[in-house]
Design a protein around this nucleic acid. Structure first.
Length: 442
RNA sequence: CGGAGUGUGGCUCAGUCUGGUAGAGCACCGCGUUCGGGACGCGGGGGUCGCAGGUUCGAAUCCUGCCACUCCGACCA
């Protein structure tokens, strides 16, 4: 993308409304625009990152056996009356009436609808297990939206739902999601810690929140330090096999949110391993058994020839919230530092002297080569002064900056800078292009 | 929902107390000089001062009502 044709409204100063650094940087980098309290338009740069995050979630869900579908944002009130939640949910649910006076709602979550879909088609235990998910916009009319996309009213969420014949197999499904979540957050460069959590109004008796530690987090959390540094299992996990050991390895160490905190158990952790911190909830998984299948009559025939209510779980990832969490975890005075896996572009090409024949030619060559290699480039071909160009690229956090100017060209050199480390080196243009292509392949 | 606060050009803010024809910096447009870490000079465009009503010769400024947004708390798949 040529910057001259892109839509990147960067701000030198942060709008006064933004309180936390991720919100300020998202506004300054031209990623989002607030349209109302807790409601944001996603500008081109923000959308690119949102899509990258969404795609990582999708890939890891698929790897763990999930099947994607897409349910609508609007749901019928009658469906929610079946589970009893239409009245229970309260004013946080946005209720809408259509021209026929039919009561609708903008979905805050999808247990009812997925259960309705499941029961309509699945009748036999032989079709289990099933794990269905979608990535869709949700609306929860929060009393107090804040912190930009971290606590918006409209937000993008991945929600998955598992269906199993009994508790044992349902717990295996829970474990698959548990492990998939470790991999999802790890791929985004986040250290997310699974913590015992309150099940809340969703019900059930087994639940973990995945928490990214950050000073600006909304939850107070307590955990064993080793959990923070424990790596993710990675892509080679056998999701067909027994995942219990991987899960046990983590839940053996103390980790709880404030609601579930047990001071005595925490004090049993060696003092130098105790960590009390703030955290951002980026994922939440639940096993809740027959909570919805019973009132909604979702049954399958078992091997015994009898009907059984299916055992369900649900598994959420706050996709749009993750952008805020990633920025909270990865930024400096200059701006955002995107982990390469979610960066809006792989490489920035900075033409220090547009209009200079040699500079233009070198930049065009680099731009074409990077695009041809399957990487993405944001080519700054504008007439801005060099300082402004550098500041903009630092702000929006592209991992690699290729700096091409007349001085370097005269010596046959271009400069390459890493956003995260600040390291710079110079090399002939072809070598830099080749180096980036090699890195992209790896 | 309780408490506090803020609404003035795209952004940051001054002006409001003490009423008298709407300002600064940044951004934007033109010309020129510049150009390797947010340049400079000259010229220029852009504002229903959140909305409605009231007081007044005259309201961004005073009064009343409403709306929006932010913060603290409570709340929270």
């Amino acid at each position: 993308m040529r910057l001259s044709r892109f839509f990147l409204p960067v701000l030198k100063e942060a709008p006064a409304d933004a309180q936390i650094v991720s919100h300020q940087l998202m506004l300054r980098a031209g990623m989002i625009r607030q349209e109302a309290a807790g409601i944001y338009a996603w500008l081109p740069l923000g959308l690119r990152v949102l899509r990258k995050v969404e795609q990582i979630v999708r890939e890891e869900m698929d790897r763990a056996g999930g099947v994607e579908l897409l349910m609508p944002t609007l749901q019928l009130a009658d469906l929610w009356r079946e589970s009893g939640r239409y009245d229970a949910y309260g004013p946080e649910m946005l209720r809408i009436t259509d021209r026929h006076e039919r009561e609708l709602l903008y979905g805050p979550t999808n247990e009812e609808m997925i259960t309705e879909i499941f029961r309509a088609y699945v009748k036999s235990y032989k079709d289990l297990p099933k794990s269905l998910y979608h990535i869709q916009w949700k609306f929860r009319d929060e009393r107090r939206p804040r912190f930009g996309v971290m606590r918006g009213r409209e937000f993008l969420m991945k929600d998955a739902y598992s269906f199993d014949l009994d508790e044992a197999t349902a717990r295996a499904a829970y474990n698959r999601m548990f492990v998939a979540y470790l991999n999802i957050f790890s791929r985004m460069g986040l250290k997310a810690v699974p913590m015992r959590a309150d099940t809340g109004p969703i019900g059930g008796d087994l639940s973990h929140e995945f928490i990214v530690l950050a000073e600006t987090g909304e939850s107070q959390v307590f955990c064993h330090k080793d959990l923070v540094e424990m790596g993710a299992p990675g892509p080679d996990v056998d999701f067909q096999g027994d995942l219990q050991p991987l899960v046990d390895q983590r839940i053996a160490l103390y980790a709880a949110t404030e609601e579930m905190h047990d001071e005595a158990a925490f004090n049993a952790v060696p003092e130098d391993k105790r960590l009390s911190a703030r955290g951002i909830e980026v994922g939440h998984i639940f096993y809740f058994g027959e909570k919805y299948s019973k009132p909604m009559n979702a049954k399958v025939t078992g091997p015994d020839g009898l009907e059984h209510f299916v055992h369900m779980g649900s598994y959420g990832v706050g996709v749009s919230r993750l952008l805020g969490a990633i920025i909270e975890a990865s930024h400096d005075e200059g701006g955002i530092i995107w982990p390469e896996a979610v960066a809006p572009y792989d490489v920035a090409i900075i033409n220090l002297r547009p209009g200079d024949e040699a500079c233009d030619a070198a930049c065009e060559k680099a731009y074409a080569a990077i695009n041809a290699s399957g990487q993405s480039a944001l080519y700054d071909d504008t007439a801005d002064r060099p300082g402004a160009k550098f500041a903009t690229m630092d702000l929006i956090g592209i991992p690699w900056q290729m700096i091409i100017g007349p001085k370097g060209i005269a010596e046959g050199q271009v400069e390459i800078k890493n956003r995260a480390t600040g390291e710079r080196s110079t090399a002939p243009l072809d070598a830099v292009i080749e180096g980036l292509a090699k890195k992209a392949k790896a």
